[in-house]
Design a protein around this nucleic acid. Sequence first.
DNA 1: ATGTCTGGCCCGGCCAGA
Length: 268
Amino acid sequence: MFLLLMTKKRRLRIASYNINGINSRLAVLTRWLAEFQPDVACLQELKCTDEVFPREAIEAAGYSAIWHGQRSWNGVATLSRVGEPVETRRALPSDPKLEQSRYLEAAVCGILVGNMYAPNGNPRPGPKFDYKLEWMDRLHEHAAGLLGSGVPAVLIGDFNVIPSDRDVYKPERWLKDALFAPEARERYEQLVAQGWTDAIRHLHPDERIYTFWHYWRNSFQRDAGIRIDHALLSPSLAKKLKSAGVDRTPRGWEKTSDHAPIWVEVEA
DNA sequence: ATGTCTGGCCCGGCCAGA
């Protein structure tokens, strides 16, 4: 019995949640942390400056955190209840718009966690779409370096890319959208092809899986969604993948985000 | 085509971004 306990491997639950305004969703966030109990939680779209990040509420929930905010838009934070995240970088190398808070990388429990919020890119064509593609090119370069280093790593967050027809309720409605643009989908495909494992799709190859539903026209009730939040695992971490999915529960709450959290469980 | 939210501006509805 003693031996059994000693050799029992524990699981680490790493989640990602585009919270769409951390201060206006604080009740949703703390409820989700309490109910879902992620060990690591990567948040995107904080929409707050560093000064007004709700550190006390996060700590009261049992998490230590690092964050990179920005006025009005973007913003990423990495929360952990399994040791303080050790920050390794707070932007992609050579991001063409460094003032945008879109990437926060940290070591937690021996895993390198890249928390990302890729540009939306609409309207297409235009400068915002150009920036989306440039940003994805920078991500591609950086991700290749991570794989080359051999470190167990996960790239997790809002990629703002619908990878395939299976990931959208009506593909024909999204043909002109930056999230479903061939140029963006190609880049996502090429990124995965470096050797990353799209954890949720890998474990659920045939399911319709969505992570985002518009607020309007009862999209969530009709399940008219898209899959744009992803978790990519490096080969060494993919070997330890046990389960992965989308937690749709908080999407049904009052005053909630338009995204649902995603999660992976790996053997620690 | 529509639709719904948030934050900013600077105090009451608009605008941009998503």
